[in-house]
Amino acid sequence: MSNYARIKNNVAVDVSAAPASQFHPTIAAEFEAVPDEVQRGWQRAEDGIWSAPPEVVPEAPEPERPRVGPVEFKLLFTSPERLKLKELRSTDPAINDFFEIIEDPRLQYVDLALASTQQGVEHSLNLLVEAGIVDEGNVATRREQILSGNLL
């Protein structure tokens, strides 16, 4: 055997072919001979058999959250929808607050996956249905178009 490992709690924490030349003598003294295939992270069972740790499967990256600039967000609504929402801002504090945030010059982008954005879009669409601008049967389609960031 030409492989040595420093073992803590039955796990090879350091592996080297020449620990005396790579580690301080105090640490090098902790190394013991192990089979050549043993690598860092391998575990030694009670019966002395070494095994590789289970393969770590990386988590799938979180999908990219759809986001658009504030002007592009407004353009996700049709012209009649925008005009009606602008009119309704004077009588609906929730829609006014929503669009004040969208128009804040510090806002760099609108996160379409954010719950508050989705609630603002939902409220906007409800108002547009009540005003007869959006057909009630078309709300789900409009919601999907807006929250996916697809311009009309």
Rank of each mutant, 00 (worst) to 15 (best):
S2M: 08
W42V: 07
V13M: 10
A12W: 00
L76F: 13
G120V: 01
Q43S: 09
V57M: 15
M1Q: 12
R89L: 05
L112F: 14
E64K: 00
T117D: 13
E81I: 03
V129L: 08
A115R: 03
R65F: 10
T26N: 12
W50F: 12
V68D: 11
V139S: 03
A113K: 03
P93G: 05
V134W: 08
E130G: 05
E59Q: 13
P53A: 06
Q39C: 10
G41E: 10
N9I: 01
L75V: 02
V15H: 13
R143C: 12
D97L: 03
L151A: 12
F77N: 02
E30N: 07
S16W: 00
Q119A: 14
S51A: 15
A140M: 15
E81L: 05
D111F: 08
S116M: 08
I133G: 00
A17C: 02
G69H: 01
G41D: 08
P80L: 11
V121S: 13
R106N: 09
E100K: 04
E37N: 10
A140C: 09
E100M: 01
V110C: 10
N138G: 13
D135P: 04
V57N: 15
Q108P: 00
A115G: 09
M1N: 14
V57D: 14
F23I: 03
F99H: 04
D92Y: 00
N138M: 11
V134K: 05
P19I: 00
E62V: 14
L76C: 05
D47E: 06
E130M: 04
P70D: 06
A140K: 07
M1C: 12
G69D: 08
N138W: 11
D14R: 05
L107K: 04
V34A: 03
N126M: 07
V11R: 03
E144F: 15
P25E: 13
Y4W: 13
K8F: 11
Y4R: 01
K8G: 00
K84A: 07
K74H: 03
E87H: 07
L75Q: 13
L112Q: 10
V56Y: 11
A131Q: 06
V71I: 05
A131S: 13
E122Q: 12
E37S: 14
R67W: 05
N96I: 00
Q119L: 12
F31I: 02
D104C: 04
G48I: 07
G69M: 07
A115F: 11
R106G: 05
P70N: 06
D36L: 11
E32H: 00
R6L: 15
P63Q: 09
E130A: 15
A131D: 07
E72G: 01
Q43I: 12
